[in-house]
Nucleic acid binder design. Structure first.
Length: 375
DNA sequence: CACCCTTTGAAGAAC
DNA sequence: GTTCTTCAAAGGGTG
């Protein structure tokens, strides 16, 4: 189900931090939808495309989609005519963000397929060269997303996979260290002996996967540290037996993951809530082609997730986060200066510029809600 | 230290 | 079929 989300007209947004961003109401949004039916098409299409893919011959995408992964050669399904998009196919899917490859979230899924052959021009050119990473072409007899070498885990070649996601920290400077740790100092097979990999992070196929995480990363690290010392077996087994398979990331999540560092650097913000607001606005400002890249990424994520965890359901993770939505709603309704209250009061949508008492988009800092819309 | 905040999208539940 | 709810990421803030 696709909810009708208010969108920003990119034209309303100023490139420089949206300092003069204007209000954008649902009426305008509806008008834009009428004037730009392709946009609507693009918004709706991902689901349809997804369904289409689900019902297609599995062999269709099994074989082709990832043989030349990352699907840069696939036609852009979000273009109205389905024709090949010169932008989204032969060209970088997205701009590299401070060394983070836009396909980072999917690299693990593609294993070696990404890093060779279809060398992506937007992949930081110095990654392979400077770091001396060379991955010979890997063939696999097993079609599909996760070509396993015949020899099993031990023969998996090192990759920029999710094994190294945890070594993509966001330093305080806002720039990630691209693949540094993962690709350095023989970070290859030793990774597979990491308890995180062999324990909860390892798929039954023997392939570690970012979606498999321990209940608490901290716990896992403690677990790892404790492994240096004798550790009571029962507890360790208990932890290892309870991996959590995370939901695959949607298009926006993938976008956020890539652009977060950039926004942090630009706005010198660290608070994720504020950053996410900005990212949400930028997401709306993206062209449909740009968004389509992320929808496609997300679609691949879901496909791969389904293949890896056929029996998994999003429901499995329900209740693992202790949400108190109802309480929060009640609380917010009792707070006269709450964002929700203010939006309701002035008929604003969720993307409305706001600041001050509402603590929205603090990065903007220019729209004095108290004066424009007295609270 | 668990949870909140904040975003969009996907999926499941509820109606 | 529609609407509501939850969870994905992230990390500073909060109680």
């Amino acid at each position: 189900m696709h909810r009708c989300q208010p969108r920003y007209d990119p034209g309303h947004l100023q490139p420089s931090g949206y300092q003069n961003a204007r209000l954008c109401g649902k009426r305008d949004e509806a008008l834009r939808r009428v004037q730009d039916p392709q946009r609507v098409y693009q918004e709706k299409l991902p689901d349809h495309m997804d369904d289409g893919m689900k019902h297609q011959d599995p062999g269709m995408y099994k074989g082709s989609a990832y043989s030349g992964y990352p699907f840069l050669m696939l036609s852009d399904p979000y273009l109205p005519n389905g024709s090949m998009s010169p932008l989204s196919n032969k060209v970088p899917v997205v701009q590299p963000s401070h060394g983070v490859h836009p396909l980072t979230p999917l690299i693990p899924y593609s294993n070696e397929h990404f890093s060779h052959g279809s060398h992506s021009p937007h992949l930081p050119a110095d990654i392979n060269q400077k770091q001396g990473v060379h991955r010979p072409s890997q063939t696999s007899d097993i079609p599909g997303f996760y070509p396993l070498p015949p020899g099993g885990v031990g023969q998996i070649t090192p990759s920029m996979g999710w094994q190294s996601q945890s070594v993509y920290p966001l330093p305080s400077c806002g720039f990630r260290q691209p693949y540094s740790s993962a690709l350095s100092a023989g970070a290859s097979f030793s990774r597979f002996t990491h308890p995180l990999m062999l324990g909860s992070g390892m798929h039954t196929t023997g392939i570690p996967h970012p979606a498999i995480v321990p209940h608490s990363g901290k716990q896992e690290m403690e677990h790892y540290d404790r492994n240096m010392k004798p550790q009571p077996e029962p507890k360790r087994e208990k932890e290892a037996k309870k991996p959590t398979i995370k939901k695959p990331l949607n298009a926006f999540m993938l976008y956020m993951k890539e652009m977060r560092a950039k926004v942090i650097a630009e706005c010198t913000l660290k608070e994720s809530a504020a950053i996410n607001q900005i990212l949400g606005r930028r997401w709306h400002a993206l062209s449909r082609e740009e968004q389509a890249k992320y929808y496609e990424l997300a679609r691949k994520e879901r496909q791969l997730h389904m293949q890896l965890y056929p029996g998994w359901s999003a429901r499995d993770n329900y209740g693992k986060k202790k949400r108190r939505t109802r309480e929060k709603q009640q609380d917010s309704s009792s707070d006269p200066a709450s964002p929700k209250k203010c939006r309701a009061r002035f008929g604003l949508n969720q993307q409305t510029d706001w600041c001050g008492p509402c603590r929205l988009l603090e990065c903007l800092g220019t729209l004095a809600c108290s004066s424009v819309y007295p609270v």
